[in-house]
Design a protein around this nucleic acid. Structure first.
Lengths: 199, 199
DNA sequence: TTTTGTGAACTAGTTCACAGCT
DNA sequence: AGCTGTGAACTAGTTCACAAAA
């Protein structure tokens, strides 16, 4: 989140930013931000604040964004194709190398921006050859665990999962879930409360 | 999350579930789950656990899912169209009534599953007429704040925001952000640590 | 006997407040 | 003077452990 904010500040030509200013952006306490950043090193300058360019570089390195990560998207459906062309990923330095699907008449095609659709049977080979760091799961719910197993078997250690429900994976594989339904439901909850409450 | 799990249990014909069993599913402590559920009422039966069907009904009511909520998607790009046809939304009872865009040659078209693309100038009218509860923002980053302002002006009180960065909205409007880039970056962080660490 | 609901104990996270740099 | 970094104080969240219920 801080990185996102710093990107914007740098684009706007801002050279320096204080914890106070960041706190207002995020509706957080200034001490929180100083603790967060100080955890990784002393990036600030007393009396001045943080140099936007330097802090941005540090955060990118901490996040491992100093090297281009190769990403594969599983499932060339509506969502998979949309994610393959999502401009934000490339902008932040991620390299979407391929979509994988098992539907024969999709294989060989490309997304609008030119990401190739490959046979999921090719996954293991391509993972080894090209070095896939992250797999994005955009397949139907009922296929999710099966595809996750394939992804794990091909040696990928990080999964971004758009299917609902938890995946069963070994402990050395990290799964980050994005459950769109849960997101809408949390808004529904807010609205249901809101009729006669606060927060 | 619990609701998602209960849906699955009910589909599998499971009648009753204990906090212990749920805890294993979610890698949580059983007391945690009992506290969470007991906060809203005494749904469990001592010596038995929770009746899946009853608990599911209770949770749906707590989340406000006992009434169909109408959802509008702002931005008929790749992502917007994919979200409009996402099966999970309808499955949970959300009603995607329309996509809104400002590109003249898109207006009047429909998504694959038949959601109409309307002129964003129609938003206010349709919000009043049809009663839009939630707006999903799937527009380019630079347009996000502008579109959010339109959404707020049309009286919608809940926004699911797929653009990066924070939106400025009145305090009575709830924004839930889904930042795809941040999700990938958190996986990148895990991988960067993982080379020589744990967690 | 089994499993919930919950006060008490414990743990983690946040904010305060100020010494220490620039 | 201004702002960071951080121990101390405080607040929130989690887990334990057991009485009460089926």
């Amino acid at each position: 989140m801080y990185l996102r904010c710093l990107n914007e500040l740098e684009d706007h030509g801002v050279r320096t930013v204080s914890s106070q200013a960041l706190a207002e952006q995020f509706h957080l306490n200034a001490a929180q931000i100083r603790k967060d950043l100080a955890y990784f090193g002393e990036f600030g300058v007393r009396g001045v604040g943080y140099y936007v360019r330097d802090l941005r570089r540090h955060l990118r390195q901490i996040l491992g964004l100093d090297q281009k990560l190769r990403v594969a998207i599983m499932g060339a459906g509506n969502l998979g194709l949309a994610l393959a062309d999502y401009p934000g990923f490339r902008q932040e330095g991620f390299d979407i190398i391929a979509l994988f699907d098992n539907e024969p008449n999709k294989i060989g095609l490309h997304s609008r921006s030119g990401v190739p659709i490959c046979d999921i049977a090719e996954l293991k080979r391509r993972a080894r050859r090209d070095g896939i760091s992250i797999a994005v799961l955009a397949v139907p719910a009922q296929a999710a665990q099966r595809v996750a197993d394939l992804v794990v078997a091909s040696g990928v250690k990080a999964i971004l999962n758009f299917s609902p429900g938890a995946l069963q994976v070994p402990t050395d594989v990290k799964v980050k879930g994005v459950d769109l339904t849960v997101s809408l439901e949390s808004l529904s909850f807010y609205l249901a409360r809101g009729e006669s409450g606060d927060t």
